[in-house]
Computed example of a mutant assay.
Amino acid sequence: MDQIDAELEKIGSLRDNPAGAIRITCTDVVIETVFRPKLGAFLKKYPAIQVELDMNYALVDIVAERFDAGVRIGEALEKDMIATRIGPDWRFSVVGAPSYFAGRSPPTTPHDLQDHDCINIRLAGSGGHLRWEFRSPDGRDVSLRVEGQSAFNTAGAALNGAVDGLGLCWISQEVAAPLIAEGRLQEVLVDWCPFYEGFHLYYPSRKRNSAAFSAFVDEMRYRGPARPA
């Protein structure tokens, strides 16, 4: 069936414009920071292409689930996959609302988080909570499980919880930046939050890609500096 689908897509690609459906599995952070800024222009440029973005925090088998590609940070790419960089290096931020910090001392090291209400993100599949990762100023990696009264299964919902004063949130700095600039969130533990290799679109090396998918990869490819200014 995969071969039949590929041949049908090839027939569609013989037209002036690439055509066909593309399915990508990723998180809501990827949708907001990588795909959303570019998707409108891409769909307008290629009106015969349909794009489905499946928001999922599980480690999805993209072949078994019949996705064209998935998205992971560069350090967590699957084997036997082709990877295309679609974003700059990025880091997490620990943020909380001014109302949360009223009457509380902000943490100065990750271990101080045990005295704070932290908003967890539950991972699909494993059922556990996402560990918060840090790096000390002298280069030591620190990985913590945090505790709090609230947990969500998406980063967007956790961020909203932080805005509402429910606790501290560990979130992509790019997502939190507008709220920090507006004064609705405060950032802490900045010196403990390292940069990570940027998001990559990954897909099977043995699969013959359609013209529609090739156009999508080319449009989403990141061509800027690795580290944001």
Results as ranks from 00 to 15, higher is better:
1 M>F: 04
1 M>K: 11
4 I>G: 07
13 S>H: 09
14 L>Y: 15
15 R>D: 15
16 D>I: 11
16 D>T: 14
17 N>I: 14
19 A>Y: 00
21 A>S: 15
23 R>Q: 05
24 I>K: 06
26 C>Q: 08
28 D>C: 02
30 V>K: 01
32 E>S: 07
35 F>E: 02
40 G>S: 11
41 A>H: 12
54 D>E: 11
54 D>I: 07
56 N>F: 02
57 Y>P: 04
57 Y>E: 01
59 L>V: 07
60 V>S: 04
60 V>P: 02
60 V>R: 06
62 I>N: 02
63 V>R: 11
63 V>G: 00
67 F>D: 05
68 D>S: 10
69 A>S: 12
70 G>T: 13
70 G>K: 04
70 G>V: 06
74 G>E: 14
76 A>M: 11
79 K>N: 11
80 D>R: 12
83 A>R: 03
85 R>E: 11
85 R>S: 08
90 W>N: 06
92 F>A: 13
93 S>P: 04
93 S>G: 09
94 V>F: 13
95 V>K: 01
95 V>Q: 01
101 F>P: 05
104 R>I: 03
107 P>C: 09
109 T>H: 09
110 P>D: 05
111 H>G: 08
111 H>E: 09
112 D>Y: 00
112 D>A: 01
114 Q>H: 10
115 D>Q: 14
116 H>I: 04
118 C>F: 00
118 C>H: 01
122 R>I: 01
126 S>H: 00
128 G>W: 00
129 H>Q: 04
131 R>S: 14
135 R>E: 08
137 P>M: 07
137 P>N: 06
137 P>W: 09
138 D>I: 09
138 D>T: 15
141 D>R: 15
141 D>N: 14
144 L>M: 14
144 L>I: 12
146 V>W: 09
146 V>L: 10
153 N>E: 13
154 T>C: 01
155 A>W: 02
158 A>E: 05
158 A>Q: 07
159 L>Q: 07
159 L>D: 03
159 L>R: 05
159 L>N: 02
161 G>W: 03
161 G>H: 06
162 A>D: 10
162 A>K: 08
164 D>V: 06
167 G>Y: 05
171 I>E: 08
172 S>Y: 13
174 E>K: 11
177 A>T: 13
183 G>N: 13
185 L>F: 03
195 F>H: 12
198 G>R: 01
200 H>S: 10
204 P>W: 04
206 R>P: 01
207 K>A: 10
208 R>A: 12
209 N>L: 15
214 S>Q: 15
219 E>K: 03
222 Y>P: 03
222 Y>V: 04
225 P>E: 14
225 P>M: 05
228 P>A: 14
228 P>E: 09
229 A>Q: 13
229 A>I: 10
